[in-house]
Deep mutational scan, measured.
Amino acid sequence: TYTWNTKEEAKQAFKELLKEKRVPSNASWEQAMKMIINDPRYSALAKLSEKKQAFNAYKVQTE
């Protein structure tokens, strides 16, 4: 089980997950979700809006 003390740690864990699963920077949210949804870190960020925000930040960083 994973635990995160801060929102920032949770966001980092979520981005690490995207990186580890090699989600391409041109992937849509739907494509990315299919690649990461079974990992416990997918739940790091509770709100869908937070997940999408972190995903978009990840995409910008990896382009």
Rank of each mutant, 00 (worst) to 15 (best):
T1H: 15
Y2K: 15
Y2R: 10
Y2C: 14
T3L: 13
W4D: 11
W4N: 08
W4A: 09
W4F: 08
W4R: 04
W4L: 02
N5T: 13
N5F: 13
N5V: 12
N5Q: 13
T6L: 05
T6H: 04
T6E: 07
T6C: 07
T6Y: 04
T6G: 06
T6I: 04
T6Q: 04
K7L: 13
K7M: 06
K7F: 09
E8I: 06
E8Y: 07
E8W: 08
E9R: 02
A10F: 03
A10V: 03
A10G: 07
A10I: 03
K11L: 15
K11N: 14
Q12S: 09
Q12K: 11
Q12R: 09
A13I: 07
F14N: 00
F14T: 00
F14P: 00
K15T: 15
K15Q: 13
K15E: 15
E16Y: 05
L17H: 00
L18I: 04
L18V: 02
L18N: 01
L18Y: 01
L18A: 00
L18D: 00
K19D: 09
K19V: 15
K19S: 14
E20W: 04
E20V: 05
E20F: 06
E20R: 02
K21Q: 07
K21S: 10
R22Q: 12
R22E: 13
R22F: 08
V23R: 00
V23M: 02
P24K: 04
P24T: 04
P24V: 02
S25A: 13
S25I: 14
S25Y: 12
S25E: 07
N26I: 08
N26L: 05
N26E: 09
A27S: 09
A27Y: 10
A27E: 03
S28F: 04
S28C: 08
S28K: 08
W29S: 00
E30M: 08
E30F: 11
E30Q: 10
E30Y: 08
E30R: 11
Q31Y: 08
Q31N: 10
Q31C: 10
Q31T: 11
Q31L: 12
A32V: 07
A32P: 00
A32D: 00
A32M: 03
A32Y: 01
A32G: 05
M33A: 09
K34E: 13
M35W: 05
M35C: 07
M35K: 05
M35Y: 08
M35N: 04
M35E: 06
I37T: 09
N38T: 11
N38H: 14
N38Q: 10
D39G: 00
P40H: 09
R41F: 01
R41H: 02
R41W: 01
R41K: 04
Y42W: 12
Y42K: 00
Y42S: 02
Y42D: 01
Y42A: 03
S43F: 13
S43Y: 13
S43A: 12
A44S: 08
A44I: 05
A44E: 03
A44H: 04
A44V: 05
L45H: 02
L45K: 00
A46Q: 15
A46F: 06
A46T: 14
A46E: 15
A46W: 11
A46I: 09
A46Y: 09
K47Q: 12
K47P: 08
K47S: 14
L48S: 06
L48K: 12
L48G: 05
L48V: 08
S49E: 12
S49Y: 07
S49W: 09
S49K: 11
S49I: 06
E50L: 04
E50T: 03
E50M: 04
K51Y: 03
K51W: 04
K52V: 12
K52C: 06
Q53N: 10
Q53P: 02
Q53Y: 09
A54H: 04
A54F: 05
F55S: 02
N56F: 10
N56R: 11
N56M: 11
N56P: 02
N56S: 09
A57E: 15
A57L: 12
Y58R: 00
Y58W: 10
Y58F: 07
K59H: 04
K59C: 10
V60N: 14
V60Y: 12
V60W: 12
V60Q: 14
V60K: 15
Q61D: 14
Q61Y: 09
Q61C: 11
Q61P: 05
Q61T: 10
T62F: 13
T62Q: 14
T62E: 14
T62A: 10
T62L: 15
E63M: 10
E63R: 07
E63D: 13
E63F: 06
E63Y: 06
E63Q: 07
E63L: 11
